[in-house]
Design a protein around this nucleic acid. Structure first.
Lengths: 199, 199
DNA sequence: CTTGTTTTGTATTGGTCGGTTCAAAACCTG
DNA sequence: CAGGTTTTGAACCGACCAATACAAAACAAG
């Protein structure tokens, strides 16, 4: 009944995630988004209503995929909980090393980046981030409780505190990566953090 | 021989630190800087050559004062090293709680904020940040070595790794704060981190 | 006072920002 | 092929950006 789209909306969204990830929200212009997605202005504003709305969708998409892969690792019931936490940290370390390829510079994590850049003055972004944090903290807490039961995680601190500590450690790893730390240093940080979690 | 300044350059710089701290680099306009410092455009561009040059001076000033107060705490030779580290973390936690007053929102740390926003594409800022990180890591490492000698810090990991872990913990605390964590949660994170540092 | 130098406020620069308008092009349905 | 609907590209919008030009004002030195 009408002319069909010449582009894949999800692909465009992925490209938007990438450019927001690389440059942040403020430093990304609508022209950057056009270049990265290959779409024209009209197509972008026709599909997503504004730069901000596009950012919200990009952020939500990023957070969702990130958290899903993280919780997938944490929910592998076969292994002891501490091993799963180790695997999560390895995932983070490896992810940081990975996105450093080519450009040479680390990108950190769009979630952490957005917390720092926008959480204080963008209610929509703050809401998305808080929702994701709650979700991730719940997963972290669950694995800490499992570890307390199977004995692989210390019971000298309550699971809530351990979960928050793990969350802070992940953020610390990502900032350290952007600050110039290499894979070896990140791995050392992760191992040291595990000392606080294991009995 | 000529007309004297009507403003104090250091005060203006402090005001610039504050506004860059609150909004970040990109989101701060020259008008914001005029409003915050009380200076006119000409005075700003006459004194500091550009927005970017002013930012460099503001960042350098912030990093210096921050690192000086941190190392002052760490160099208190009377107490065991572990206590000094605890005092440092308390300083960070308290600082985050403090800057949350009034506005309700945490500001994090201009250093961490800049690592995330600019380190990847602003060589000047990256250089300042790396210089500061090296300096801070040296101080952290020194206190870890002292702790190894006085027995208050674990000797099961080398001081370099412990220093990097402490650095990541500080960053993690600051991101957690911006992400909405309150003083109690931050304190719990700090305590848990100490578990990895003490024997 | 006058002279010389600096600071200061105002107006303005060219450029880019996010966003809109509009007509032509492209497609599906019948 | 024709009619109706959507997408698309390009020109365009006012607003704001960092930065500059310039002249009036304010001082110190003689």
């Amino acid at each position: 009944m009408a002319r069909p789209r010449m582009f894949d909306e999800e692909r465009a969204l992925d490209a938007a995630v990438r450019v927001f990830w690389e440059r942040g929200y403020e430093a990304t212009s609508t022209q950057d988004l056009c270049d990265a997605t290959g779409l024209g202005r009209s197509s972008i504003y026709n599909t997503f209503q504004s730069k901000h709305a596009l950012f919200e969708r990009a952020l939500a998409r990023y957070l969702d995929t990130m958290t899903v892969t993280q919780t997938a690792v944490l929910d592998d019931m076969e292994r002891p909980a501490a091993d799963r936490v180790r695997a999560l940290l390895a995932l983070v370390v490896e992810g940081e090393a990975e996105c450093r390829e080519g450009s040479g510079r680390a990108l950190g994590c769009l979630g952490v980046n957005t917390v720092v850049e926008l959480a204080g003055r963008d209610p929509a972004a703050a809401a998305l981030l808080e929702r994701d944090t709650v979700r991730r903290l719940a997963a972290y807490r669950a694995v800490m409780e499992a570890g307390r039961r199977d004995g692989s995680i210390t019971s000298s601190r309550d699971p809530e505190a351990l979960a928050r500590f793990l969350n802070a450690t992940v953020a610390g790893l990502r900032v350290s990566s952007q600050g110039g730390a290499g894979p070896a240093e990140l791995a050392a940080i992760a191992e040291t953090a595990m000392d606080a979690l294991t009995p």
